[in-house]
């Protein structure tokens, strides 16, 4: 039983890591007033980018490739929504579909229809001496791959930047009232574009984590809706970096509860477990009141003319 609980905690943190990456990036984008539904696309692009770059130049190159791929996808989104001011939701959907298709095509072109890329370098757990031996939480928090520690540092750093710097203040102002931000001398569009690109970088990193720290390989559509789940996590975390981490862990736990059930010998269709995060997303979105908390200008394309 205690083993199962340890496994549950460890699994929660592990599955939460890519979600937390993506959600931490999305929280920055959304606080600037842009909802990037194309986050799913950044994740799948990051996964493939990570795979290809790691195959060529090792794990570090892999993560760099994941970031580049995520940023590239986000750049397309930014060009459409910020420069052209096309509807953010439809653009994001189109970009997700494009990324899913393109990664599939590139993957098949690179590895053939059957060939999975085995032998991809991955990173294993990097236990923190001493702390990882703590009962229960030790393996969960301190015997994870480096990526998990990066998220742990990134969340408070994001909070500090958002609430303790003028740039963070400007970002929050853009999400609430971009016209007022511009009147105060802030280049709202430029800031929003930067926020979207940052979100893309972290989305790419989420995809890279899936491949290089978890699965060890790529599969078409392996992002499996994580981009959308991350958006729900942002809502559940009330658009706050720390809240997002807590909400991400909740999703991680929901995903990992199958380990507990397996340990208890409880048999259920595995599809039920696989469906859990999706159903949880719906429940979370339906139960959390976002009105008054969500950035006031979120998703609003600015009108060209009065």
């Amino acid at each position: 039983m205690s083993d199962a609980l340890t496994a549950l905690l460890e699994g929660s943190v592990r599955t939460a890591t890519p979600l937390a990456f993506a959600a931490l990036g999305e929280v920055v984008a959304e606080r600037s007033g842009v909802i990037n539904i194309g986050l799913e696309g950044a994740i799948i692009a990051g996964a493939l980018g990570g795979l290809l770059a790691a195959g060529a130049g090792g794990v570090v190159a892999g993560f760099a490739g994941a970031i580049v791929a995520g940023v590239a996808v986000a750049a397309v989104f930014a060009a459409f929504t910020i420069a052209l001011r096309v509807d953010q939701i439809i653009t994001g959907t189109g970009i997700t579909l494009l990324s899913l298709g393109l990664t599939g095509a590139i993957y098949r072109a690179a590895y053939g229809t059957g060939g999975a890329a085995l032998g991809t370098p991955t990173i294993g757990p990097a236990p923190v001496p001493g702390l990882s031996a703590l009962p229960w939480v030790g393996p969960a928090l301190f015997a994870q791959p480096v990526t998990t520690y990066v998220v742990m540092i990134l969340a408070p750093a994001t909070w500090w930047w958002m609430y303790r710097t003028h740039d963070g203040l400007a970002l929050r102002a853009c999400g609430e009232n971009p016209e007022a931000a511009e009147a105060a001398g802030i280049r709202a569009s430029r800031l929003q574009a930067a926020a979207v690109l940052w979100g893309g970088a972290l989305g790419g990193l989420a995809g890279g984590t899936l491949v290089l720290a978890q699965a060890g390989t790529f599969a078409e559509g392996m992002s499996a809706g994580r981009g959308f789940i991350a958006i729900a996590i942002v809502v559940l975390g009330r658009w706050h970096p720390i809240g997002v981490i807590v909400a991400g862990l909740l999703f991680g736990a929901a995903n990992s509860v199958q380990f507990l059930f397996q340990a208890m010998g409880w048999q259920a269709p595995y599809q039920l477990f696989l469906a859990t995060p999706y159903v949880l997303t719906l429940v979370a979105l339906a139960t959390v009141r976002s009105q008054g908390v969500a950035p006031a200008a979120l998703g609003r394309p600015r009108r060209d003319t009065a």
């Binding site: 400007a170 929050r172 102002a173 609430e176 009232n177 931000a181 802030i186 950035p295």
Partner: peptide
């Protein structure tokens, strides 16, 4: 040109 959700101090500091 105010940001209603921000405080007076935050509005003044903006920019």
């Amino acid at each position: 040109m105010l940001v209603p959700a921000l405080t007076v101090a935050e509005n003044v500091a903006l920019g």
